[in-house]
């Protein structure tokens, strides 16, 4: 990776150093404030400010009292820091129906997130493994259909799914919304695992076959231990994706089980009562906290996760 970066700069004079000069030697010292540097860093810093601005506004707004918000402007830092909006957002903000705060949505989201993530990854990893090493007649066709399925607008599928869930008694339940997440997570995750297992040397698989290991044994004892990184990538994709979902939550979970995003939207966009912008922003930050945490902790793996679906395999 490192030597890739050595390019497109004003020509580095290192290449002339092999000739034996008398006098000043070594590469030309770089100036810190060259025009190029000013343009590059200026552009990047401006862009960074644009990207950071909303986060900054959220944080300062959530720490102000309402009088201060009405008086000042959205960019000014809080004169008196208060955590009351945070407490209220978590504990007693109103969604229009009841006033129990975001904590209800938070726990609903957790209850949706954990089983959805686990089940979808288990299924997809086995699928990917089967598609790489145990192809059967038609397996590629099903896989292609699955991949195309990832592009079907959800709007086409939501109503038939409502019927299926209603018939099976899963509509308006946590199990129902979990099932929907498992279904819609399958294309991207299967692709991810298939591509990963495709890069595993087939000799490894053959050797295990010769030793008499079967489908599940090879999966459990050989493939699983060596595929930890890809599991982490899959977990990242699913956590952010499922936590951030709105559409499935609002349709399939039922009023009692609304996930955090739906509740957040109901709190902020409810038409009743005086708008409390500080509480709204605290609630928004609370909802954003988990994906942001995952993002900052995972770093490069996150990038790998989002690129996984994109860069062709």
């Amino acid at each position: 990776m490192k030597d890739v970066k050595k390019r497109s700069l004003p020509v580095n004079s290192a290449s002339t150093s092999s000739i034996d000069f008398t006098g000043p030697n070594g590469p030309k010292p770089k100036r810190v404030f060259s025009t190029r540097n000013i343009v590059v860093y200026g552009f990047l810093i401006l862009a960074a400010m644009y990207y950071l601005l909303p986060l900054y506004v959220m944080v300062v707004t959530s720490l102000k009292g309402m009088p201060e918000i009405r008086m000042g402007n959205i960019f000014s830092p809080p004169m008196e820091i208060t955590f009351e909006p945070w407490v209220k957002a978590w504990d007693s903000a109103c969604t229009g129906l009841y006033c129990e705060g975001l904590k209800v949505g938070f726990w609903n989201s957790v209850q949706i997130l954990i089983p959805s993530t686990v089940i979808s990854i288990v299924i997809a990893s086995v699928n990917g493994y089967a598609l790489s090493f145990w192809r059967f007649k038609g397996s590629e066709i099903f896989f292609t259909i699955l991949l195309f399925g990832a592009f079907i607008p959800y709007q086409v599928l939501i109503y038939p799914l409502v019927i299926i869930l209603r018939e099976t008694g899963l509509f308006s339940s946590l199990a129902g919304v979990t099932l929907v997440h498992v279904i819609f997570g399958m294309p991207i995750l299967t692709l991810l695992f298939r591509n990963y297992f495709a890069s595993v040397p087939v000799e490894l698989f053959k050797a295990a076959r010769v030793d008499g290991a079967g489908f599940w044994r090879i999966f459990g004892q050989i493939m699983l231990p060596m595929s930890l990184p890809i599991f982490i990538v899959a977990i990242i994709i699913q956590i952010t994706g499922i936590w951030n979902d709105f559409l499935f939550g609002v349709i399939y979970a039922g009023t009692k089980n609304f996930p955090m995003t739906v509740q957040l939207n109901n709190i902020v966009n409810s038409t009743q009562g005086v708008k409390e912008y500080n509480v709204n922003m605290a609630a928004t930050l609370l909802t954003a906290a988990l994906p942001l945490f995952v993002y900052f902790v995972s770093g490069k793996l996150f990038v790998r996760g989002i690129a996984a679906g994109a860069v062709k395999g």
């Binding site: 862009a47 960074a48 990207y51 950071l52 909303p54 986060l55 506004v57 959220m58 952010t240 936590w243 951030n244 979902d245 709105f246 995003t261 957040l264 939207n265 902020v268 966009n269 709204n280 922003m281 928004t284 909802t287 954003a288 994906p291 942001l292 995952v294 993002y295 900052f296 996150f302 990038v303 989002i306």
Partner: peptide
Amino acid sequence: IFLYPFALSFIVTGLV
């Protein structure tokens, strides 16, 4: 910095 908004949901984005 450039990528963090992508971790946020559209709901959060919209509300901000």
